[in-house]
Protein backbone atom coordinates (compact mmCIF):
# COMPACT_ATOMS: atom_id res chain seq x y z
CA UNK A 1 0.00 0.00 0.00
CA UNK A 2 1.29 3.41 -0.98
CA UNK A 3 2.01 6.10 1.56
CA UNK A 4 -1.04 8.14 2.62
CA UNK A 5 -0.74 11.91 2.47
CA UNK A 6 -3.22 14.63 3.25
CA UNK A 7 -4.50 16.46 0.17
CA UNK A 8 -5.67 19.53 2.06
CA UNK A 9 -2.41 19.88 3.95
CA UNK A 10 -0.52 19.66 0.69
CA UNK A 11 -2.81 22.36 -0.69
CA UNK A 12 -2.20 24.68 2.25
CA UNK A 13 1.56 24.24 1.93
CA UNK A 14 1.49 24.79 -1.80
CA UNK A 15 -0.52 27.98 -1.42
CA UNK A 16 1.90 29.36 1.16
CA UNK A 17 4.82 28.54 -1.15
CA UNK A 18 3.04 30.23 -4.01
CA UNK A 19 2.61 33.31 -1.86
CA UNK A 20 6.38 33.59 -1.59
CA UNK A 21 6.93 33.07 -5.30
CA UNK A 22 4.22 35.42 -6.55
CA UNK A 23 3.32 38.64 -4.71
CA UNK A 24 0.18 39.04 -6.82
CA UNK A 25 -1.41 35.98 -5.25
CA UNK A 26 -4.11 36.83 -2.71
CA UNK A 27 -6.21 34.38 -0.72
CA UNK A 28 -9.80 34.55 0.43
CA UNK A 29 -11.56 32.17 2.75
CA UNK A 30 -15.09 31.94 4.07
CA UNK A 31 -14.47 31.05 7.71
CA UNK A 32 -13.03 27.63 6.98
CA UNK A 33 -9.32 28.40 6.82
CA UNK A 34 -8.62 25.86 9.55
CA UNK A 35 -10.28 23.29 7.29
CA UNK A 36 -9.00 24.32 3.88
CA UNK A 37 -5.56 24.95 5.42
CA UNK A 38 -5.31 28.45 4.02
CA UNK A 39 -4.21 29.48 7.54
CA UNK A 40 -0.70 28.61 6.41
CA UNK A 41 -0.86 31.40 3.84
CA UNK A 42 -2.51 33.75 6.32
CA UNK A 43 0.31 33.31 8.84
CA UNK A 44 2.93 34.24 6.28
CA UNK A 45 1.05 36.90 4.31
CA UNK A 46 -1.66 38.38 6.52
CA UNK A 47 -1.98 41.48 4.31
CA UNK A 48 -2.88 39.32 1.34
CA UNK A 49 -5.40 37.16 3.18
CA UNK A 50 -9.07 38.10 3.48
CA UNK A 51 -11.52 36.20 5.64
CA UNK A 52 -15.02 37.13 4.49
CA UNK A 53 -16.89 35.11 7.10
CA UNK A 54 -19.78 32.85 6.14
CA UNK A 55 -20.46 34.72 2.90
CA UNK A 56 -19.44 32.60 -0.05
CA UNK A 57 -21.23 34.57 -2.75
CA UNK A 58 -19.56 37.74 -1.50
CA UNK A 59 -16.20 35.99 -1.42
CA UNK A 60 -16.41 35.08 -5.09
CA UNK A 61 -17.37 38.59 -6.19
CA UNK A 62 -14.71 40.20 -4.01
CA UNK A 63 -12.20 37.85 -5.64
CA UNK A 64 -13.49 39.09 -9.00
CA UNK A 65 -12.74 42.69 -8.02
CA UNK A 66 -9.24 41.73 -6.91
CA UNK A 67 -8.71 39.93 -10.22
CA UNK A 68 -9.89 42.96 -12.19
CA UNK A 69 -7.09 44.92 -10.53
CA UNK A 70 -4.47 42.35 -11.55
CA UNK A 71 -4.33 40.15 -8.48
CA UNK A 72 -4.48 36.35 -8.68
CA UNK A 73 -7.12 35.50 -6.08
CA UNK A 74 -7.62 32.00 -4.71
CA UNK A 75 -11.12 31.85 -3.21
CA UNK A 76 -11.42 28.97 -0.78
CA UNK A 77 -14.27 27.08 0.76
CA UNK A 78 -16.00 23.74 0.57
CA UNK A 79 -16.75 22.56 -2.96
CA UNK A 80 -20.51 22.47 -2.56
CA UNK A 81 -20.57 26.08 -1.39
CA UNK A 82 -18.47 27.58 -4.13
CA UNK A 83 -20.08 25.54 -6.89
CA UNK A 84 -23.67 25.74 -5.68
CA UNK A 85 -24.26 28.56 -3.20
CA UNK A 86 -22.10 30.94 -5.19
CA UNK A 87 -23.03 29.44 -8.56
CA UNK A 88 -24.50 32.61 -10.02
CA UNK A 89 -21.52 34.69 -8.94
CA UNK A 90 -19.30 32.08 -10.55
CA UNK A 91 -21.35 32.07 -13.74
CA UNK A 92 -21.76 35.80 -14.22
CA UNK A 93 -18.68 37.41 -12.72
CA UNK A 94 -16.07 34.67 -13.06
CA UNK A 95 -17.03 32.64 -16.14
CA UNK A 96 -18.96 35.09 -18.32
CA UNK A 97 -16.81 38.08 -17.36
CA UNK A 98 -13.74 35.81 -17.76
CA UNK A 99 -11.94 37.07 -14.69
CA UNK A 100 -8.73 35.46 -13.48
CA UNK A 101 -10.25 33.94 -10.35
CA UNK A 102 -9.13 30.61 -8.93
CA UNK A 103 -11.92 28.79 -7.14
CA UNK A 104 -10.34 26.37 -4.69
CA UNK A 105 -12.98 23.80 -3.87
CA UNK A 106 -12.02 21.82 -0.81
CA UNK A 107 -13.65 18.87 0.96
CA UNK A 108 -14.67 17.50 -2.43
CA UNK A 109 -16.76 14.43 -3.12
CA UNK A 110 -17.60 12.42 0.00
CA UNK A 111 -14.38 13.41 1.78
CA UNK A 112 -16.21 15.40 4.44
CA UNK A 113 -17.79 12.05 5.14
CA UNK A 114 -18.91 12.37 8.75
CA UNK A 115 -20.57 15.75 8.24
CA UNK A 116 -23.02 14.07 5.91
CA UNK A 117 -24.76 14.92 2.64
CA UNK A 118 -25.19 18.60 3.52
CA UNK A 119 -21.42 18.86 3.23
CA UNK A 120 -20.71 16.33 0.49
CA UNK A 121 -20.04 17.65 -3.01
CA UNK A 122 -21.28 15.17 -5.57
CA UNK A 123 -22.69 17.42 -8.29
CA UNK A 124 -20.24 20.33 -8.33
CA UNK A 125 -18.37 19.11 -11.39
CA UNK A 126 -21.58 18.93 -13.41
CA UNK A 127 -22.29 22.55 -12.58
CA UNK A 128 -18.87 24.09 -13.17
CA UNK A 129 -18.10 21.96 -16.21
CA UNK A 130 -21.14 23.36 -18.00
CA UNK A 131 -19.94 26.96 -17.62
CA UNK A 132 -18.31 28.46 -20.72
CA UNK A 133 -14.76 29.82 -20.12
CA UNK A 134 -14.33 27.64 -17.03
CA UNK A 135 -11.35 25.33 -16.64
CA UNK A 136 -11.86 22.44 -14.25
CA UNK A 137 -8.94 20.71 -12.52
CA UNK A 138 -9.18 17.79 -10.06
CA UNK A 139 -6.10 16.70 -8.15
CA UNK A 140 -5.44 13.00 -7.57
CA UNK A 141 -2.98 13.01 -4.71
CA UNK A 142 -0.89 15.26 -2.48
CA UNK A 143 1.93 15.49 -5.00
CA UNK A 144 -0.41 16.54 -7.75
CA UNK A 145 -2.03 19.17 -5.53
CA UNK A 146 1.38 20.74 -5.00
CA UNK A 147 2.08 20.72 -8.71
CA UNK A 148 -1.38 21.93 -9.65
CA UNK A 149 -1.46 25.04 -7.45
CA UNK A 150 1.31 26.95 -9.27
CA UNK A 151 0.06 25.66 -12.63
CA UNK A 152 -3.40 27.01 -11.87
CA UNK A 153 -1.93 30.34 -10.76
CA UNK A 154 0.03 30.69 -13.99
CA UNK A 155 -2.92 29.73 -16.17
CA UNK A 156 -4.69 32.80 -17.49
CA UNK A 157 -8.41 32.57 -16.77
CA UNK A 158 -11.02 31.14 -14.42
CA UNK A 159 -10.19 27.79 -12.84
CA UNK A 160 -12.12 25.48 -10.54
CA UNK A 161 -9.57 23.44 -8.58
CA UNK A 162 -11.10 20.51 -6.73
CA UNK A 163 -9.25 19.12 -3.72
CA UNK A 164 -10.20 16.31 -1.37
CA UNK A 165 -10.12 16.60 2.39
CA UNK A 166 -8.77 13.08 2.68
CA UNK A 167 -5.47 11.37 3.19
CA UNK A 168 -4.94 9.63 -0.12
CA UNK A 169 -2.34 7.12 -1.36
CA UNK A 170 0.50 8.88 -3.15
CA UNK A 171 0.66 7.79 -6.77
CA UNK A 172 2.92 10.38 -8.35
CA UNK A 173 6.57 11.05 -7.64
CA UNK A 174 8.10 14.49 -7.40
CA UNK A 175 8.99 14.54 -11.11
CA UNK A 176 5.29 14.65 -12.00
CA UNK A 177 4.25 17.78 -13.89
CA UNK A 178 0.75 19.14 -14.29
CA UNK A 179 0.03 20.47 -17.77
CA UNK A 180 -3.49 21.81 -17.74
CA UNK A 181 -5.53 20.15 -20.47
CA UNK A 182 -3.30 17.09 -20.81
CA UNK A 183 -4.29 13.68 -19.54
CA UNK A 184 -1.69 11.31 -18.13
CA UNK A 185 -1.30 7.68 -19.15
CA UNK A 186 -0.27 5.82 -16.01
CA UNK A 187 -0.36 2.28 -17.29
CA UNK A 188 -0.49 0.69 -20.72
CA UNK A 189 -3.00 -1.98 -21.64
CA UNK A 190 -5.04 -3.09 -24.64
CA UNK A 191 -8.24 -4.69 -23.33
CA UNK A 192 -9.98 -1.80 -21.61
CA UNK A 193 -9.16 1.74 -20.44
CA UNK A 194 -9.82 2.94 -16.92
CA UNK A 195 -10.16 6.72 -16.92
CA UNK A 196 -9.98 8.18 -13.44
CA UNK A 197 -9.98 11.57 -11.79
CA UNK A 198 -9.26 12.68 -8.22
CA UNK A 199 -8.94 10.05 -5.55
CA UNK A 200 -10.31 7.43 -7.96
CA UNK A 201 -7.07 7.42 -9.95
CA UNK A 202 -5.29 5.39 -7.29
CA UNK A 203 -8.24 3.01 -7.22
CA UNK A 204 -8.07 2.60 -10.98
CA UNK A 205 -4.43 1.52 -10.64
CA UNK A 206 -5.43 -1.02 -8.00
CA UNK A 207 -8.25 -2.26 -10.21
CA UNK A 208 -5.83 -2.67 -13.11
CA UNK A 209 -3.65 -4.90 -10.89
CA UNK A 210 -6.62 -7.08 -10.03
CA UNK A 211 -7.74 -7.27 -13.64
CA UNK A 212 -4.26 -8.40 -14.64
CA UNK A 213 -4.70 -11.41 -12.39
CA UNK A 214 -7.76 -12.27 -14.48
CA UNK A 215 -5.70 -11.90 -17.64
CA UNK A 216 -7.17 -8.50 -18.54
CA UNK A 217 -4.72 -5.76 -19.51
CA UNK A 218 -6.19 -2.44 -18.48
CA UNK A 219 -4.83 0.92 -19.57
CA UNK A 220 -5.10 3.61 -16.90
CA UNK A 221 -5.46 7.29 -17.76
CA UNK A 222 -5.62 10.13 -15.31
CA UNK A 223 -7.73 13.11 -16.33
CA UNK A 224 -6.87 15.95 -13.97
CA UNK A 225 -8.33 18.53 -16.33
CA UNK A 226 -12.00 17.74 -16.84
CA UNK A 227 -12.29 20.81 -18.97
CA UNK A 228 -10.85 21.37 -21.51
CA UNK A 229 -10.64 17.58 -21.59
CA UNK A 230 -7.87 15.77 -23.44
CA UNK A 231 -10.06 14.50 -26.27
CA UNK A 232 -7.26 12.99 -28.32
CA UNK A 233 -5.96 10.82 -25.49
CA UNK A 234 -9.47 9.53 -24.77
CA UNK A 235 -10.33 8.87 -28.41
CA UNK A 236 -7.03 7.08 -28.91
CA UNK A 237 -7.71 4.90 -25.88
CA UNK A 238 -11.20 4.11 -27.15
CA UNK A 239 -9.84 3.13 -30.58
CA UNK A 240 -7.07 1.00 -29.16
CA UNK A 241 -8.89 -0.72 -26.30
CA UNK A 242 -12.52 -0.60 -27.45
CA UNK A 243 -13.99 -0.22 -23.95
CA UNK A 244 -13.89 2.54 -21.35
CA UNK A 245 -14.57 2.75 -17.63
CA UNK A 246 -14.69 6.15 -15.98
CA UNK A 247 -14.23 6.55 -12.22
CA UNK A 248 -14.95 9.67 -10.19
CA UNK A 249 -15.97 10.72 -6.69
CA UNK A 250 -19.06 12.47 -8.03
CA UNK A 251 -22.49 11.70 -9.37
CA UNK A 252 -22.51 9.64 -12.54
CA UNK A 253 -24.36 12.58 -14.09
CA UNK A 254 -22.35 15.36 -15.61
CA UNK A 255 -18.86 14.78 -14.28
CA UNK A 256 -15.97 12.82 -15.76
CA UNK A 257 -18.23 10.07 -17.07
CA UNK A 258 -20.39 12.62 -18.78
CA UNK A 259 -17.40 14.40 -20.27
CA UNK A 260 -15.87 11.18 -21.62
CA UNK A 261 -19.19 9.96 -23.00
CA UNK A 262 -19.71 13.32 -24.73
CA UNK A 263 -16.35 12.98 -26.48
CA UNK A 264 -16.77 9.37 -27.47
CA UNK A 265 -20.42 9.58 -28.47
CA UNK A 266 -19.51 11.73 -31.42
CA UNK A 267 -15.93 10.68 -32.15
CA UNK A 268 -15.54 7.01 -31.30
CA UNK A 269 -18.58 5.26 -29.84
CA UNK A 270 -17.52 2.38 -27.61
CA UNK A 271 -19.05 1.02 -24.39
CA UNK A 272 -18.52 3.48 -21.53
CA UNK A 273 -19.21 2.25 -18.00
CA UNK A 274 -19.41 5.08 -15.48
CA UNK A 275 -18.27 4.34 -11.93
CA UNK A 276 -19.54 7.06 -9.63
CA UNK A 277 -22.30 7.83 -7.19
CA UNK A 278 -25.66 6.76 -8.59
CA UNK A 279 -28.28 9.50 -8.81
CA UNK A 280 -28.67 9.65 -5.04
CA UNK A 281 -27.48 11.53 -2.00
CA UNK A 282 -25.13 9.58 0.24
CA UNK A 283 -25.33 9.57 4.05
CA UNK A 284 -23.13 10.13 7.08
CA UNK A 285 -20.49 7.50 7.72
CA UNK A 286 -16.77 6.71 7.75
CA UNK A 287 -15.17 7.77 4.48
CA UNK A 288 -13.96 4.37 3.36
CA UNK A 289 -17.31 2.81 4.18
CA UNK A 290 -19.11 5.48 2.20
CA UNK A 291 -16.90 4.96 -0.81
CA UNK A 292 -17.71 1.24 -0.74
CA UNK A 293 -21.42 1.74 -0.05
CA UNK A 294 -21.90 4.26 -2.84
CA UNK A 295 -20.15 2.36 -5.59
CA UNK A 296 -16.66 3.81 -5.55
CA UNK A 297 -14.70 0.72 -4.49
CA UNK A 298 -11.95 -0.97 -6.46
CA UNK A 299 -14.35 -3.87 -6.96
CA UNK A 300 -16.80 -1.48 -8.63
CA UNK A 301 -14.15 -0.47 -11.14
CA UNK A 302 -13.22 -4.11 -11.76
CA UNK A 303 -16.87 -5.03 -12.29
CA UNK A 304 -17.29 -2.04 -14.59
CA UNK A 305 -14.33 -3.16 -16.65
CA UNK A 306 -15.82 -6.63 -17.08
CA UNK A 307 -19.13 -5.13 -18.20
CA UNK A 308 -17.51 -2.72 -20.62
CA UNK A 309 -15.43 -5.50 -22.14
CA UNK A 310 -18.48 -7.77 -22.43
CA UNK A 311 -20.34 -5.00 -24.24
CA UNK A 312 -17.65 -4.68 -26.93
CA UNK A 313 -18.88 -5.68 -30.34
Amino acid sequence: MAELRSMRKAYGEALAELGAANPDVVVLDADVSASTQTWMFREKYPDRFFNVGVAEANMVDVAVGLALAGKIPFANTFAFLVALRAAEQVRTCVAYARTNVKLAAGYAGLSDALDGPTHHAICDLAVVRSLPNMTVVVAADAVEVKKAVPAVAEYDGPVYLRVSRAEVPVIFDERHEVHIGQGVTLREGGDVTLVGTGIMVGRCLEAAERLKREGIEARVIEIHTLKPIDEELIVQAARETGAIVTAEEHSVIGGLGGAVAEVLGSRCPVPVWRVGIADTFAETGPYEALLERYGLGVTDIVAGARRAIAAKK
Binding site: V64, G65, L68, A69, T92
Partner: peptide, 25 residues
Amino acid sequence: VEMTAGALGHGLAVGVGLALAARLD
Protein backbone atom coordinates in the same frame (compact mmCIF):
# COMPACT_ATOMS: atom_id res chain seq x y z
CA VAL B 1 -17.08 49.13 -19.01
CA GLU B 2 -15.22 48.09 -15.86
CA MET B 3 -17.35 45.12 -14.97
CA THR B 4 -19.94 42.88 -16.49
CA ALA B 5 -23.15 43.41 -14.55
CA GLY B 6 -26.89 43.28 -14.70
CA ALA B 7 -27.66 40.15 -12.87
CA LEU B 8 -28.30 42.21 -9.75
CA GLY B 9 -26.31 42.18 -6.56
CA HIS B 10 -22.73 41.85 -7.75
CA GLY B 11 -21.34 45.34 -7.99
CA LEU B 12 -20.71 46.18 -4.36
CA ALA B 13 -18.74 43.01 -3.65
CA VAL B 14 -16.72 43.47 -6.82
CA GLY B 15 -16.11 47.06 -5.75
CA VAL B 16 -14.85 45.81 -2.38
CA GLY B 17 -12.32 43.65 -4.24
CA LEU B 18 -11.15 46.58 -6.35
CA ALA B 19 -10.85 48.82 -3.31
CA LEU B 20 -8.84 46.17 -1.45
CA ALA B 21 -6.54 45.78 -4.44
CA ALA B 22 -6.00 49.54 -4.61
CA ARG B 23 -5.00 49.54 -0.97
CA LEU B 24 -2.60 46.59 -1.45
CA ASP B 25 -0.99 48.41 -4.37
